[in-house]
């Protein structure tokens, strides 16, 4: 049982570093997420891990702890209709409007990569789109990014949302793991990004996906992230949130059931299609 003061310390750490809203009363949650971190980092207990954190000075350990509290996006084709709408309607219309310019797509809370890889699998074989898209993916978690880039998934993971036909077409088996083909892996560029930081250096995007992260954030952090993501949209661009995630100011819901939003000033590419 983690003492209250330490639970409050952890919640404050996660809030300050990543805007994460952690309910410090949820002891079981802290224990189940931090147990593996403590073991991996060689601490005899979660208590010892927290003591070390409170001594300060170990940045890497602080981030490893915060990352562990993030709920990763871990399903292929989560919300199938969103992927169908994106690849079947939104992106073809954007490609027509963009002339020869490549479309820039950013998975902003990519976790272990299932979201951006789902898109890569769909787009690679979509006539006229495969070589017209630039896929970017970022996450706060270094560990998640490492796993994403390795693109080696367990038998359990490849049965979450991934149709068997795509499994046999896009993956190779290496030992017990299913590894995405190099051709698809090479479509994606990766970077560690804390969405609370200034993201303007990343450039602007036609589509930004940020699903199921906002509900994990404190209100001020949520506003800040939404503002930077909206600001990173190209004119006519689309922000995809999780279903039912409220977007707030500066964004117009195009198809709320799949989280599709437009910058309020952007012209509606999809309805013009």
């Amino acid at each position: 049982m983690i003492p209250t003061t330490n639970r409050i310390y952890l919640a404050a750490l996660c809030l300050a570093r990543a805007g994460l809203r952690i309910d410090s009363d949820k002891t079981y949650l802290l224990e189940s997420r931090l147990g593996p971190v403590a073991r991996r980092e060689g601490f005899p207990s979660i208590e010892a891990l927290i003591e070390k954190l409170r001594d300060g000075g170990d940045e890497r350990l602080a981030w490893a702890t915060v990352e562990a509290m993030l709920l990763p996006e871990a399903e292929f084709f989560r919300d199938r209709r969103m992927f169908e709408t994106l690849s079947g309607e939104v992106l073809p219309a954007m490609a027509r409007a963009a002339g020869g310019r490549p479309l820039r797509i950013w998975s902003a809370a990519c976790g272990t990569g299932q979201e951006i890889y789902s898109l890569a699998m769909l787009l690679a074989d979509a006539a006229g789109l495969g070589d017209r898209v630039e896929l970017f993916a970022s996450d706060l978690s270094e560990r998640a990014l490492e796993k994403a880039q390795a693109a080696a998934f367990s038998q359990f993971e490849v049965q979450r949302g991934l149709p068997a036909r795509l499994l046999v077409r896009c993956f190779e088996k290496e030992g017990e793991a299913f590894v995405l083909s190099p051709r698809l892996r090479q479509m994606v560029r990766w970077r560690r990004v804390n969405l609370l930081d200034d993201v303007s250096a990343l450039g602007r995007f036609d589509v930004i996906l940020c699903r199921n992260l906002l509900p994990q954030l404190a209100p001020e952090a949520k506003d800040r992230v939404l503002q930077s993501l909206s600001g990173a949209l190209l004119p006519g661009g689309r922000l995809v949130l999780g279903p039912g995630e409220a977007a707030g100011r500066g964004l117009t819901a195009i198809d709320p059931a799949i989280g599709l939003h437009a910058a309020a000033t952007g012209d509606d590419v999809r309805s013009a299609a």
């Binding site: 038998q155 068997a164 036909r165 499994l167 046999v168 993956f171 190779e172 088996k173």
Partner: peptide, 11 residues
């Protein structure tokens, strides 16, 4: 059976 060739055969 979890080999991709086997899965392909089944499909």
């Amino acid at each position: 059976e979890s080999d991709l060739d086997a899965i392909r055969e089944a499909l």
